[in-house]
Nucleic acid binder design. Structure first.
Lengths: 244, 244
DNA sequence: CCTTGACCTTGCCGCAGCGGCAGGGTTTCT
DNA sequence: AGAAACCCTGCCGCTGCGGCAAGGTCAAGG
């Protein structure tokens, strides 16, 4: 048989067969005078064995091992390992599909894949065009994606988000966009912000390991000077609370 | 933040981030005077979005598309397609595991992954050292692997395998190993072989499409001249029966 | 001051299992 | 005789990074 014929018999492509030759999985058969590979039925039997194993999901290296050690004992080992691997993949896929289902169910409006808990929180918050509020929401999605914040954080933030008084605080922060870093309104606003956040929020944020070096600086760099001052003061106050 | 810091915040490797830059999935941030990449919190937010999507199983190209079309409508499409794909993979894995389970249950002796139906058939056949019988078994595994033979073939072959008289036929075929192609024993043996195979076997073999060109020649080449003659006669007789 | 160690930079190779293509030659059918 | 359908070798491409090489940079400690 020529390569196309054995390929048709066994049900694989000629490219695959040549690849098997290339990696030494199948021996190169004799050649006809014109250079064509001349396959025997025994080659087809061998190829079919290879094929069965690869279709089960074994890697070519594993197939080579199994065919080399004709022990048959090895095969059972490899198959069991493979089954364990497939089981792992299966649960992985199920988990992903579960999360996908959650997203698909809750997302026909949002253009962002976020956890349902955060989605609920954001939905509760009043609509606003405040830039600093938008920034806060972005930071929350970051927290959400890293998985650092659990359900408790969102639950604790719930009343805060629903409180219309918070909007006024955001607006006062917005007003500091062009103010100098020593604006007199800074300390007062910082104090009010600290007071507004309930203790539970702070308690719910996992404090395992310090915040990554450089993150705070980067966070402050996001804001105008006077706003950064406010944020810095608020953060300091929280760190104090953490120590207390 | 430096690259290692943003990587720690979001929970990815620096290599992945650089890769995202390389393929244009994330914009290259500004550089510090020393050449280090300087990331902002906004970069972290973006990276986190990318990360969420890739973790769901989207390809980097798909992520790029989703982030480009901020429509949010596109996202739902991609996610649904992804879910369909995952569902397909899941059933695929289940099917493989099912076959694996069958093999693992029935195989603690055989060194070959074959269908249980064929395994049962081979177990029924009496033990023999006949080379031509061994060849036949190999050819059956080939048939088994290609999926051409269904359960009916094996069922029809059952009585034949269990018949000890068949052993004598194999031995007579073996005896022709060194005989010339015009040995007088050939026609009689061929006729007896044809007579031995029940009609159901022949009927059960699916005859969709001719046998692959070149296969018969290769099959005949497996045998010594006189044996090949027998096989050829048997095949001819079957083809005749097929026409009738 | 010098070293060590922990960072950062660019860039290229490797991975699995083939598919595709280029740039030939052969056989076969019409 | 020409076209279609085969065959050959060989190399690049895909995915999503990981690893390694061969450096530059920066902070802390002996």
């Amino acid at each position: 048989m020529r390569i196309g014929e054995i390929a048709a018999v066994v049900g694989v492509t000629t490219r695959a067969i040549r690849h098997y030759h290339h990696v030494g999985l199948l021996p190169e058969p004799d050649r006809r005078p014109n250079g064509y590979r001349a396959y025997t039925v025994r080659d087809a039997v061998l190829l079919a064995r290879v094929r069965r194993l690869t279709e089960l999901g074994l890697s070519l290296d594993e197939v080579r091992d199994v065919l080399a050690d004709d022990a048959g004992r090895d095969l059972a080992d490899v198959l069991e390992e493979l089954d364990a691997d497939l089981a792992r993949q299966e649960t992985e896929i199920k988990e992903r599909r579960r999360r996908l289902a959650v997203l698909l169910a809750a997302e026909p409006g949002e253009g962002e894949p976020i956890s349902p808990a955060l989605a609920e929180l954001l939905a509760k918050a009043p609509h606003t065009t405040s830039p600093t509020a938008a920034k806060d929401r972005e930071h929350l999605t970051l927290l959400d994606a890293t998985g650092a914040g659990g359900e408790e954080v969102y639950a604790a933030l719930g009343p805060l988000a629903a409180d219309p008084a918070v909007l006024a605080l955001y607006e006062r922060l917005d007003e500091l966009a062009d103010a100098p870093a020593d604006d007199p309104r800074i300390p007062g606003l910082a104090a009010e912000l600290v007071a507004a956040v309930p203790d539970e929020v702070f308690a719910a944020i996992p404090r395992d390991g310090a915040v990554v070096t450089g993150f705070k600086e980067a966070l402050l760099a996001e804001y105008a000077p006077a706003q950064a001052e406010v944020v810095r003061l608020v953060m300091e106050a929280f760190i104090e609370r953490g120590r207390g």
